Computed example of a mutant assay.
Amino acid sequence: MKFILASASERRIELLSRVIKDFKVIPSDFDEQTIKFNGSVPEYVMKLSKAKAEAVSSATYAFSESDVTVIGCDTIVSIDNLILGKPKDKQDAFRMIKMLSGKVHSVYTGITIINVNFDIIKCDYACTKVKFSNLSNQDIEKYLCLEEYEDKAGAYGIQGYAGVFVEAIEGCFYNVVGLPLNKLNKMFGEMGINL
């Protein structure tokens, strides 16, 4: 069986390599803006992961490979039912971190697994609650100078310097990084695939 990860995220690649030794990386070119948020974060993040996986799985036919399984993921940060995507710039990142300061927010990852040859689609999500300490403007500015906020949902990565902001976590740590390994393993098990 051949596995394809529909993501260029270095964090996802590193995590997936812990459980699958041999896989291809084919980033999805799906335009996330085409899916609108309807108020349900789990539904939204699963739709995004499915769209990404489908975009790559349709392209795999060009490779004429047999027994291909595509893994699509999308991770978002949500607070007060608002979606915090990737910040546009430093000012936007400051706004996001300020919103998270002293509060509990949720990190959702949608996962879609598609067995291309048998047209089997499995879609699910994981949610982790994360509490940040109260942060001063100086704390936030110091963090932003590191430029770690770039290309990260909610303007932070728990595996980087922003890990010092995290006071408590409830749920899967790897979900916050971008790939909930426990959920992924269960989904593969339900499809009869042992990693």
Rank of each mutant, 00 (worst) to 15 (best):
N137H: 09
E32S: 05
V45G: 00
L48D: 00
D151G: 12
N38P: 02
F23M: 08
I111C: 03
S101K: 10
F23L: 07
N134H: 11
D92P: 08
G102L: 10
I76P: 02
F30H: 02
M1S: 14
R12W: 05
Q159A: 14
K103V: 12
K88I: 10
D80M: 05
E190G: 06
D31Y: 03
E43R: 02
E147S: 14
N182S: 14
K21G: 12
G157T: 13
L82I: 03
V104N: 11
A59D: 05
L135G: 07
S101L: 13
V45K: 01
L15E: 07
H105G: 11
P87D: 12
K36G: 01
E10R: 11
K50S: 00
D124I: 02
S66F: 04
N134P: 07
E150N: 13
I83M: 09
S133M: 12
E54S: 03
D31R: 03
I113E: 00
Y174Q: 15
L48N: 00
F37E: 01
G154E: 11
Y108C: 05
R11P: 02
E32Y: 06
I79G: 07
V177M: 11
N182H: 12
D74M: 04
L181M: 11
I169D: 04
G102Y: 11
V130Y: 08
L135P: 15
I111P: 01
K21V: 04
E150I: 15
E150C: 10
